[in-house]
């Protein structure tokens, strides 16, 4: 079994596999999002307390979950990259970072536009919001470090170290901000008092969550293919690819 997996751990053999998988995830994401948005925006009834503003939940919550989950997956690939010195795992971590940053941004942005009508403010120094903002800084730090290093092998390892150090810090940051917030008792806002959701709302939220998963996987696979092509430049298997042979430069 282990040997089996190491076979796919070579960029050259993973490239076509990723190419075959990506369209399925993309199509699933599109279909799920279409149904999810239809149910969430049209079919689901108006919430008794929050009115129609609650409909932001259908993108806010999946994006927030995804933003944290992608960081965990990045940390997993980084640990593999450092432990086993596998190039593909570092490429996977690299491919995930921009999408993770994007999800974090979406979570923050939609949170602001949900917060304004429900708690009367675009921004509060709530533990979750503050940690999410720091998470965005961590993603941007990893991307900036990657861009700052010319040698890709060094960039792989440096970004892996940074990602793992950040992963240790994320829970500490969350609890520190939470504690800081309770000490100051500044924001009386409680996000935990979520309104009881009707089954139809849960359905829409579930569909949108699955769509976000599909999107993130598809985008990461497509990006890892681009990264493989960048990194393997000059390798003979690349020039035999139909998409490269077909090109007229």
């Amino acid at each position: 079994m282990a040997a089996h997996w190491f076979l796919y751990a070579s960029p050259a053999s993973f490239y076509p596999i990723a190419g075959r998988m990506a369209p399925w995830f993309a199509a699933a994401a599109a279909a799920l999002a279409l149904v999810g948005l239809w149910i969430g925006l049209v079919v689901a009834p108006t919430d008794a307390q929050q009115g129609d503003a609650y409909r932001i939940i259908f993108i806010h919550v999946p994006a927030a979950w995804m933003s944290m989950f992608i960081y965990l997956v990045m940390a997993f690939w980084s640990a593999l990259a450092l432990g086993y010195n596998t190039r593909l795992s570092a490429m996977m971590a690299q491919a995930l970072a921009p999408t993770g940053a994007l999800m974090t941004f979406i979570a923050l942005w939609t949170g602001a536009f949900w917060g304004r009508p429900t708690w009367g403010t675009y921004w509060a120094w709530d533990a979750r919001m503050t940690s999410e903002l720091i998470l965005l800084f961590l993603y941007l730090g990893v991307i900036a470090l990657r861009n700052g290093i010319d040698d890709p092998r060094r960039a792989d390892k440096a970004c892996s170290v940074l990602t793992l150090v950040g992963a240790v810090n994320v829970p500490i940051i969350y609890f520190s901000v939470k504690w800081w917030n309770t000490l100051h008792q500044g924001s009386t806002i409680s996000m935990t008092a979520a309104p009881k959701m009707a089954a139809i709302m849960v359905t829409a939220l579930g569909l949108m969550t699955l769509a976000t998963w599909g999107y993130a996987i598809a985008v990461a696979l497509i990006r890892v293919r681009a990264i493989i092509v960048e990194r393997e430049r000059g390798a003979s298997w690349l020039s035999h690819l139909p998409e490269v042979r077909r090109l007229v430069v």
């Binding site: 108006t46 009115g51 129609d52 503003a53 409909r55 932001i56 993108i59 806010h60 994006a63 921009p98 999408t99 994007l102 941004f105 979406i106 942005w109 939609t110 536009f113 949900w114 304004r116 009508p117 999107y215 985008v219 497509i222 990006r223 681009a226």
Partner: peptide
């Protein structure tokens, strides 16, 4: 959106925009 149009569509619109930007850059 029951008077919440600005908030709902700013959230959904900007999300759609940044996803479109990511896809185009990709």
């Amino acid at each position: 959106m029951g008077g919440y149009g600005w908030y709902v569509w700013m959230a959904y619109g900007v999300t759609a925009l940044v996803i479109a930007v990511e896809l185009l850059m990709l």
